[in-house]
Design a protein around this nucleic acid. Sequence first.
DNA 1: CTGAAAGCGCTTACAG
DNA 2: CTGAAAGCGCTTACAG
Lengths: 339, 339
Amino acid sequence: MRGIARLAKELGISTGTVSRALNDRRDVSPATRELVLATAKRLGYAPNQAARTLALGTTRSIGFMMDLDREAAASSEYFFMGVFDGVQTVFAEHNLDLLVLPRPTKLNAVSYLQRYVSRGVFDGMILAATQRTDPRIEFLESAGLPFATLGRSGSGKNYPWIDLDFEGVAEAAIDRLVAAGHRRIAVTVPADNINFGPIFAAAYERALARHGIGFDPQLVFARGRNEAVGYRLVDELALVPNPPTAVLLIFETVAIGMYRRMAELGQIPGRDLAIIGFRDEPTVRFLTPSLTCFATSLHEVGEDLARALLARLPGQGAEPHDEAVRKLAPLAIRPGESG
Amino acid sequence: MRGIARLAKELGISTGTVSRALNDRRDVSPATRELVLATAKRLGYAPNQAARTLALGTTRSIGFMMDLDREAAASSEYFFMGVFDGVQTVFAEHNLDLLVLPRPTKLNAVSYLQRYVSRGVFDGMILAATQRTDPRIEFLESAGLPFATLGRSGSGKNYPWIDLDFEGVAEAAIDRLVAAGHRRIAVTVPADNINFGPIFAAAYERALARHGIGFDPQLVFARGRNEAVGYRLVDELALVPNPPTAVLLIFETVAIGMYRRMAELGQIPGRDLAIIGFRDEPTVRFLTPSLTCFATSLHEVGEDLARALLARLPGQGAEPHDEAVRKLAPLAIRPGESG
DNA sequence: CTGAAAGCGCTTACAG
DNA sequence: CTGAAAGCGCTTACAG
């Protein structure tokens, strides 16, 4: 005999009563509740999750799908660490577990998701690195599983999302560069179909327009996110006719490669070329001259994401047709010497 | 009516037969099997995971615990992505799911593990970043849950592990540096209690001894893993009495900061200071002069890890007292210009 | 406040 | 080859 039955036998009471005591129902005498809890502790009892799920119809666990494809991920492992931590801060208060789903590179995203969804493994799901059109979103909507996304998308109807304020970043960066006298400002954008690519590019163009600066497609560089990109970018920028005097980076790690190439050329960021990065990742904080970039709390992004999903979960007093939470996480400029 | 009962009703047969057909038992007529599978597909049926687990006593999912603490993680950015991918390659053949458990920074590692283990959520567990003495290992052994670790440890008795061949790296690196005429060779080691720290340090010392070079504690730098460490390290090395002419890095990312500081000082890696890094992460591949470092297949490490665990799972024809798999993943030197 | 019983959705001896 | 039934370990109306 095992599980709750063993406890019940040990105590000479029914399993029903043990269950009620364990779940803190009020219709149990304080005495038995004490006794049950003490015995459970002594015997190291914990309720079997599968049995609980089956009886309750709820798993209390949430999946967070993560792409193993380095390029598709479009965020570093460190990025997610902060987010996971934030998500779990909120989940802990609601007795929810976070389980991360690392999608193998050779598996289709939707089939991978489906595998879990159809078997009822999760009560809800979080998606990251949303694409311009994202079949995962359509799938989850049609499956009727509550979900929230880190990033907007052209797909889907009424789902909650949290996203970084890419528009705000582009605006603040361009304002700062223009104020410093720059008129030829390049920008890097992602090379893939991640949703924030066009958003960032459009915001860049709008910000320039506000200052009466025309858009020059030659100044837009669709590139990846690693240091090697930055190393090459320095030379590429110099080759543009009427070369830019400043560049705004969607991936801050690119700055590391730029700094090194510039050092080799005897150039100094902020003097010979203005550089503004995106997030102030620990990985770029060591750069000198200090990199101008933007601070945001990944922990808070995670918390917001958790709350946005929570509001969609049944039993949270929310109607399924209530408007979903949508929020842009602000990024505060951290002025540096690079631009 | 839902689940298997709905299928059974639809087909006018018993749930038992449906189950047998679905699970490819042979005591089902080919005709009914076909029919059941077709109907299941048409209705989008997938077996409820909780019910299956409860009936079978097995979850077919494996947890991979990951530390969210950036320092405790002690692996570079993309390290785990490769490993996860490899693990899942093997798991896929055995119908096992990999779920990653991101331990919140403020939660004790053992309590976090226990939360899942005691509720029977996983059939097995994988641990990474093993510590010199690692309570998680003792806990899992006492709980009797099959597990494997990425990294050795002083804790535990007979559990399978896969580890990188730190000894081989130290040896090959020192051989190469000594052959190039270096006698004053510094080394960086982790600043925390990760298990490979002392292993690497000892191997470094032994390798020097083989060449008749005495150990100088002033040449050992216990440091973190980021670029800032490298940026400072260049100056710290120069301050050592009778300064080293070469340095071996346990964390290759440190090289990025070193390269930048050296560029500022007009120094060239490989000419003014020999540098050998550890793994050839994509993140250091862009460095010029090219960094001498070591290649290993994270995908294979993941596959080995999966197989090592698999051998401990019940029903794999293995006895619990069989000797556990223990394997050092080889790293092949990639000679560069830096040292 | 407590117990007996049904039910969650599966699987699997056991008959036939 | 198939069906009826028990069982996996929980929870929760329903009686009392």
